[in-house]
Design a protein around this nucleic acid. Sequence first.
DNA 1: GATTCGACGCAGCAATCGACGCAACTCGTA
DNA 2: TACGAGTTGCGTCGATTGCTGCGTCGAATC
Lengths: 315, 315
Amino acid sequence: MADEALSAGAVARRLGVAVTTLRTWHQRYGLGPSEHVPGHHRRYTPADLARLDIMRRLTAEGVAPAEAARWARQAPAVLPPGRLGLNRRATAVRDGGGTTIPVGRAGPVARGVARAAMRLDSVAIGAAVAHALGADGVVPTWDGLLRPVLAGIGERHAATGGLIEVEHLVSRCVSEAFATVARAHPVAGPARILLACADEEQHTLPLEALGAALAEAGVGYRMLGARVPVAALVEAINRTGPAAVVLWSHTRVTADPDQLTAVLAAPRRPLLVLAAGPGWRADTLPAGVVRPVNLAEAVSLAVAVRDSLDQSTAG
Amino acid sequence: MADEALSAGAVARRLGVAVTTLRTWHQRYGLGPSEHVPGHHRRYTPADLARLDIMRRLTAEGVAPAEAARWARQAPAVLPPGRLGLNRRATAVRDGGGTTIPVGRAGPVARGVARAAMRLDSVAIGAAVAHALGADGVVPTWDGLLRPVLAGIGERHAATGGLIEVEHLVSRCVSEAFATVARAHPVAGPARILLACADEEQHTLPLEALGAALAEAGVGYRMLGARVPVAALVEAINRTGPAAVVLWSHTRVTADPDQLTAVLAAPRRPLLVLAAGPGWRADTLPAGVVRPVNLAEAVSLAVAVRDSLDQSTAG
DNA sequence: GATTCGACGCAGCAATCGACGCAACTCGTA
DNA sequence: TACGAGTTGCGTCGATTGCTGCGTCGAATC
């Protein structure tokens, strides 16, 4: 029970900064004990300590102190990437065979989309996807409907070599649906999140899903699209100074960690760098890069960044 | 006191222009912070930001920067995002260069799109393109606006090697706009036209333009998308029995005439086979293949096929 | 008596300042 | 068709500004 309240000296020693700095942070950035009577000693609760720890970590990573403080002040400890378990088990429904796409137990809607895809019926695909997006939202639709269908097509394609036209057709329809969602949710503020594919990477759909989810959540973003060379990515970062950068890599060959290193070494280093997609290997990622396991996790991280204002130096 | 005043860098990042440009605008057009002591840092108030936003919006609409600045300077600081005057050039103002995309004499709207593209401002691009599509229709917009801009980007990309991210961004925006057009014109009848890229061909945009134009004309079509192998194309033809097939090839390497031969040899041979795109060479095309020189020609051919078909079945 | 408080000052460094120049685009003219 | 004039965005350079961490000092707190 000794963690009730820490004195300023104890906190300073624990964080590795001077006591005076702690006072400065309190005065300049409002980053102090939540309950403090002027003139009396500061007593830091564990929550205050967590805030200060975020501040310390961000400044250690090169984020400008004022910005780091803003981030730390309004962060309800979002940095630990918690597991958002959502393995929803569906009831085992048997469905007929024929020339279809394996969708596993993704439900009847997925099966319907798969059949429409085999018919090359883009109207039906678009209608079904749009309806699902409107009814369930982007993230559930992606996880529960689109990813299973696309995975099924991919599986089939890998096994038989055919079905390429089906894959393209579904991709286009899904892409259109995402674009419609994004257009239906215009975002007022400036775009603080940059979405880009890794170099040579041409799978844009997951990034578009993320974009649609962000638009749904009211977060502005900039989408660079497929095959972004490192130089172009760094230039875009310098030009627009995003708070977060999401780099998507679908396969291992496009997941060159040097791209992430280049992003981290940019003059205007983003607050948050996300390495998304199955291509990245966790053990080769440079320090300071977060690897979301989920669309949902990527969205929540990006939403958390939204509230951080820019103004790198002006206080 | 946090968001009262923005630094120059923060404003530049928010607008998507370089910091030096901001200073230039201040010096040349008097478009700077209302209270600024020479030698001291510039602090932009929300009102100043609103002025700059007017400047940004006007330039994105194609207004010459000097004129846009004049407009923004004497704006009552509170101009909601209403539609301002359209692309009418009042006085003969010379329009300069800078780091832009050459659009030739394609008009102020093209220049506005080019400027917005350089700023990676997808919202402005999408709005301008959507407005042009709605006002002028697909074919004129493609020939008069989109193709010049895209050609300018391509030229510049070929010359300098950069600008890839701009190219992707514009492509995506245009693609979304086409999709929106297609969705706004639902076609009742069956899809009799099949649109496909040649094998290994990945430029989809011209095909999407054709699709949007067909939708606008009330002609149903099926879009297969990029990189369609010959086998997949033939199978799709057999499965759906289209009256016309459009095969797009952008570069010469993807324009293998054997693909056209295979289409002509399909069990359900289409009434009309179009070899579209600059990749095809007229002297190597098999007999029975038509080569449209234009988007307009492709559209009119497709419309003709539809009409003749309707006559034969319904008459 | 040890520690912390608020206030103040100082040195290092990143961002910005003003000035200047360059390259590129458009347009009028020869 | 070629070329010069007018515009425009932005990179560069040396100087300046202002943010940042921390030390110091007299008074107050524990």
